[in-house]
C-alpha cells in the first residue's frame, strides 16, 4: 500500500468536516466538525513527515493541536455565553438581520 492513501483519507475527512460545518446548525456540532478538519490536517502533516523523513511535520501537527486546544477553550466559552443569552446553541439564531 502506498502511504499516499493516508493523504486521500485526510482529504476525505477534511471535506466531510467542512461540509458538516456548512450543514449543521448546532454550534457544538459545528465545532466538532472543525476539530475533525484540524485532525485531518494533522493526519496529512504526519504523513508528510513520514514521506520526507523528518520530524517537522509532526512538530506542525503538535502546534496545531495546541492551537486547537486554545480554540476549543475560547470557542466553547463563546458557545456557553451565547447559550446563556439566547437559550439556544443554534448558529442561525445569532443572526439578527431582517430578510
Amino acid at each position: 500500500m502506498n502511504p499516499v492513501n493516508y493523504l486521500y483519507l485526510a482529504a476525505l475527512l477534511f471535506t466531510i468536516g467542512a461540509t458538516g460545518v456548512l450543514i449543521r446548525r448546532n454550534a457544538i456540532v459545528v465545532f466538532m466538525c472543525i476539530e475533525l478538519m484540524l485532525n485531518a490536517c494533522n493526519l496529512a502533516f504526519v504523513t508528510f513527515s513520514r514521506m520526507h523523513g523528518n520530524l517537522d511535520g509532526q512538530i506542525i501537527a503538535f502546534f496545531t493541536m495546541v492551537v486547537a486546544a486554545a480554540e476549543v477553550v475560547v470557542g466553547l466559552a463563546i458557545i456557553v455565553s451565547l447559550f446563556r443569552t439566547r437559550h439556544s446553541a443554534s448558529v442561525d439564531d445569532a443572526s439578527l438581520m431582517k430578510l
Binding site: 502511504p3 493516508y6 483519507l9 485532525n39 494533522n42 493526519l43 504526519v46 504523513t47 513527515s49 513520514r50 509532526q58 501537527a61 503538535f62 493541536m65
Partner: peptide, 14 residues
Amino acid sequence: FYLANGAYFLGIVQ
C-alpha cells in the same frame, strides 16, 4: 494512524 506513521508522541497526545 499516527502511531502507524511513526509519530508515537503525537499518537499518544492525540
